[in-house]
Design a protein around this nucleic acid. Sequence first.
DNA 1: AGTGTTTATCGTAATATTGCAATATTAAAT
DNA 2: ATTTAATATTGCAATATTACGATAAACACT
Lengths: 109, 109
Amino acid sequence: MGATKTEHFTDKQNAVATLTKALGHPARIAIIEYLIKVDSCICGDIVNELPLAQPTISQHLKELKNAGLIKGNVEGNAICYCIDEKAIAKLRDYFANMYIKLSKKNNCC
Amino acid sequence: MGATKTEHFTDKQNAVATLTKALGHPARIAIIEYLIKVDSCICGDIVNELPLAQPTISQHLKELKNAGLIKGNVEGNAICYCIDEKAIAKLRDYFANMYIKLSKKNNCC
DNA sequence: AGTGTTTATCGTAATATTGCAATATTAAAT
DNA sequence: ATTTAATATTGCAATATTACGATAAACACT
């Protein structure tokens, strides 16, 4: 045990969990927020921006990429990372819809 | 190592990460979705609903509660769990705002 | 007091995550 | 061809998470 039993849940539930799990770390939130802040989607600066070692940030970027939250474009010997808008749209829609459903109910507590 | 360096990030970033981390597991997504689906916020049924043992679900509920996503009301010997709308509203606003910022940029990739 | 029902906690095994030093890879620039 | 710069990968130690059996705690009802 220790492994998540993904097979017991729906594809949609697993898809949402993949996105939220990838965002479930302050460093990855900080990376996403930095990518939004900077005009051009420069990348290596993230290492200078965050108080984490380069391999650690590279690993966080990899996880964000695997989850589909960011895309990476090779530009010479540098890499240009930027956010995949579709993933953010999915999360926005998911929570907006959830809130609508909630407000239609009379929550007991 | 192995521990998240929360002290390096802002309170806001940690707060968002706490919420998304709590939702970063399909069982907890399933629990939240179940709590929305059922009319009354009955609780122990979750054990019957999900293919996980009772202690496992109790643990997941605890994490959702610690993150502030759900609230629990004791009702006799049962407990009535329900979603804290404010937490969902926070997530909705966070991602809606993020999407607006994104759409104002010209993403390079 | 005794019984059943519901939920929480403890203990523990299996696995995953976090973080970094060291090293490798890739590609531009000299 | 060497050097320099940017990023990725490997290997490893520390810690966290996931899952569950066993057990405890809390409460209602006889």
